[in-house]
Amino acid sequence: MNLQELTQRLHQIRDTNDWQRFHSPKNLAMAASVEMAELVEIFQWLSEDESRRLPPEQLAHAGQEVGDVVLYLLLLCSELGLDMDQVVRAKLADSERRFAR
């Protein structure tokens, strides 16, 4: 996955639709949260086992919501001047240091 290419494509959509005025860090964080809530809704009321065996339609829906969350987070990183690859790698290294045995 080329994050720079994805971000450029997102910026093209944003610019074509004149959405940049809405893409403040606050709004993007809230939008990512809303999309995450839509993902959580798919699993609401399912058992642990059911959540691991989603029917194809629900699995596709979950994938769409995951995509929405990731795309909003890419836009948020862009607005904040963060390199997503770098921040994710730094967080992973921190988790490995703290939790790996």
Rank of each mutant, 00 (worst) to 15 (best):
A37I: 01
D15P: 12
V88C: 01
R21K: 11
R98I: 07
D18Q: 14
L10V: 09
V70Y: 04
Q86M: 03
E5V: 14
E57V: 14
S33L: 10
S78C: 12
Q8F: 12
T7L: 14
N2D: 15
R9Y: 05
S51M: 06
Q4C: 07
E65Q: 10
R101S: 08
A90T: 09
H11V: 08
E65A: 06
D18V: 06
Q64L: 13
L82I: 00
L71F: 13
S95Y: 05
L80P: 06
E48I: 09
L46R: 13
V34G: 10
R53A: 11
R53E: 10
L74G: 02
A93H: 12
R101H: 04
A90S: 12
R14A: 00
M84N: 03
S51T: 03
R52I: 03
H11S: 10
A31N: 09
L6R: 08
Y72H: 07
A90R: 14
M30E: 01
V40N: 02
P25E: 14
D83M: 01
V88T: 11
E5S: 14
S24L: 13
P55E: 10
N17T: 07
E48A: 08
F22I: 00
M84H: 04
D83I: 01
Q8N: 14
L75F: 12
G63V: 05
T7E: 15
F22Y: 07
Q4L: 08
W19Q: 11
E79V: 10
P56D: 13
K91F: 07
Q44M: 10
N17E: 00
E5Y: 09
L80V: 06
V66H: 04
H23Y: 12
D94F: 11
E50A: 15
V69I: 15
G67E: 05
E35K: 15
E57C: 08
